[in-house]
């Protein structure tokens, strides 16, 4: 564990908790993409299957359980909670997220390190995580006016990605044989998707204005 990875995990954790807290306390999921949340639930469910097969640390297992629990709770709130579900922007959140799942699955079947069930699903989760934010970014563009919490959620997620890249550079320099092309390329693609959002986020922050994305 290095400081970059810890900072990445903590911003990731904060992003999910900000979202869950927003939904739980103000009973609203306005501006939140259910499609993205469902994709994250699939990402965690397919990546963390190794909970049953390998043990790394208490920290690792605990965080996995938190991410699984929080992502499925958010999906549950948005789909089934009687007040929250009414605030969901159903008409705006129209991204065909299944069109992301299938190509990622095909890619994982073609490009992986080992052709085993767990390994292919693990690789699939990396590919899917890289693009899972897309429905949320599209929804932000459509609704344009973004409340602070949704903005902070995406900002924290982007921060998590940034810290993970620093973590990989650090590990590459300090650990022998630390080369993981699939993880790195998927992670880099994911981080680049945030670049546009970050640009407008900092603009609004600099000008002390409410965040608005161009149509």
């Amino acid at each position: 564990m290095n400081i970059f990875r810890l900072a990445g995990d903590m911003t990731h954790l904060a992003s999910v908790l900000v979202l869950l807290l927003k939904i739980h306390t103000i009973k609203s999921c306005a501006g939140v993409s259910l499609k993205t949340q469902e994709l994250y639930a699939i990402v965690f469910a397919t990546r963390y299957l190794d909970i049953f097969t390998s043990f790394y640390s208490i920290y690792n297992t605990l965080m996995k359980l938190i991410f699984l629990g929080s992502s499925f709770s958010i999906v549950w709130y948005m789909r089934y909670h009687k007040t929250v579900r009414r605030t969901y922007d159903r008409e705006q959140d129209t991204f065909r997220h299944w069109f992301l799942v299938l190509p990622c699955l095909l890619l994982a079947l073609l490009i992986h390190e080992k052709f085993t069930f767990l390994e292919v699903l693990w690789t699939f989760s990396l590919y899917l995580e890289a693009v899972a934010i897309l429905p949320q970014l599209v929804l932000l563009q459509r609704t344009r006016n973004i409340d602070n919490l949704t903005g902070q959620y995406v900002f924290l997620l982007g921060g998590y990605r940034g810290f993970y890249i620093l973590n990989w550079i650090y590990r590459y320099l300090t650990e022998p044989h630390f080369v993981h092309w699939i993880t790195w390329i998927a992670g880099l693609v994911q981080t680049l998707l945030y670049a546009d959002f970050f640009y407008y986020y900092f603009q609004s922050w600099k000008n002390n204005k409410k965040l608005q994305l161009p149509a």
């Binding site: 990875r5 995990d9 990731h12 190794d50 390998s54 790394y56 640390s57 690792n60 965080m63 996995k64 991410f67 390190e113 693990w122 993970y164 973590n167 590990r171 650990e175 022998p176 044989h177 630390f178 993981h180 993880t183």
Partner: peptide
């Protein structure tokens, strides 16, 4: 070397 050292990441 452990060739699956990324698996200890989240």
């Amino acid at each position: 070397p452990n060739d699956h050292s990324t698996k200890d990441e989240l």
